[in-house]
Simulated assay, not measured.
Amino acid sequence: MAATYVHAIASEDVAINTILKGGAPLYASEWSEKNGVSEIQPLSTFEWARQVRVDLPALQQYAQAVHTATDAYLATLTDDELSRNIDLSSFGLGQMTVGTILNRLVLGHIDNMCGEISCLKGLQGERGYPL
């Protein structure tokens, strides 16, 4: 489950700070030495997920920094910016508007991973989604 959490945070970091803002992700810049993750791999693999080590309190601080950066970015958006097209062909996704990227690659992705974590918890005898 820790790997899924890392993937969720790192993916938001890449979507906001790299794809939408055109900069470096926080995990590769100001948070590179203090993100609490042995190795961040935004496009996670099974092997990576089995090997990654997490310092949860440090990861939670990095996650808060990512969320703060996301909030700051969202506060700047205009209707024109939400309609701007971005070429994601290098990811195999073609052209998407900023609004679609936020909807599908940030919010939708997090929603999907919430389900994955819930399933993993259930498989381990824990409570999945709360009732």
Results as ranks from 00 to 15, higher is better:
residue 43 L to W: 08
residue 26 L to A: 14
residue 123 L to Q: 07
residue 32 S to M: 14
residue 71 D to L: 15
residue 58 A to I: 04
residue 23 G to H: 08
residue 82 L to Q: 06
residue 109 H to V: 03
residue 33 E to L: 14
residue 101 I to K: 00
residue 100 T to Y: 02
residue 95 Q to E: 15
residue 117 I to D: 01
residue 48 W to E: 03
residue 131 L to Q: 06
residue 121 K to Y: 07
residue 104 R to Q: 07
residue 47 E to R: 10
residue 23 G to R: 09
residue 25 P to C: 08
residue 114 C to A: 13
residue 15 A to L: 13
residue 114 C to I: 12
residue 100 T to A: 10
residue 74 L to I: 15
residue 66 V to Y: 11
residue 85 N to W: 02
residue 78 T to F: 03
residue 89 S to A: 11
residue 21 K to F: 11
residue 14 V to S: 02
residue 127 R to Q: 07
residue 96 M to T: 03
residue 94 G to W: 02
residue 47 E to V: 09
residue 70 T to W: 10
residue 53 R to H: 10
residue 22 G to R: 14
residue 84 R to L: 09
residue 110 I to P: 01
residue 17 N to E: 10
residue 29 S to K: 13
residue 78 T to N: 03
residue 89 S to I: 01
residue 129 Y to I: 01
residue 44 S to L: 12
residue 6 V to W: 00
residue 108 G to V: 04
residue 51 Q to V: 02
residue 5 Y to K: 08
residue 80 D to H: 09
residue 53 R to F: 00
residue 15 A to W: 05
residue 36 G to S: 11
residue 31 W to F: 15
residue 110 I to M: 04
residue 94 G to Q: 04
residue 120 L to G: 00
residue 74 L to E: 15
residue 108 G to E: 00
residue 24 A to M: 14
residue 62 Y to H: 10
residue 5 Y to E: 04
residue 121 K to T: 01
residue 98 V to A: 05
residue 4 T to Y: 00
residue 127 R to S: 04
residue 56 L to V: 11
